[in-house]
Amino acid sequence: MVTLTHYLALSAILFGIGAVGFLVRRNALIVFMCVELMLNAAGLAFVAASRYRGLLEGQLTVFFVLTVAAAEVAVGLALMVAIFRTKKTTNVDELSSLRG
């Protein structure tokens, strides 16, 4: 019997992997992908909850998250291209000119 807990646990694991990836990888593009993975994990939790509660709102939330993620990726990648043009790198550790 697959329960909500199964899905929530899977979601938590995926989220955790995404979070660790975000903190460990230095390639800005992969860092970005890790954010997408985390969003995706959250989406899974939403849809699972939606199924087990019999509510549609979870799916709608995922729908909105998807569109927002699309917008975010577009802008983020454009930023990255712009940064690459001037800095010639996508290493996040070399993009630290806002150091205090």
Binding site: A19, F22, L23, V24, R26, V31, V92, D93, L95, S96, S97, L98, R99, G100
Partner: peptide, 17 residues
Amino acid sequence: VRRWSSGYVRQYGLSVL
């Protein structure tokens, strides 16, 4: 305090986590 603001995105992320 400004020493905390290292400019490393990943470090900020770690603080959040």
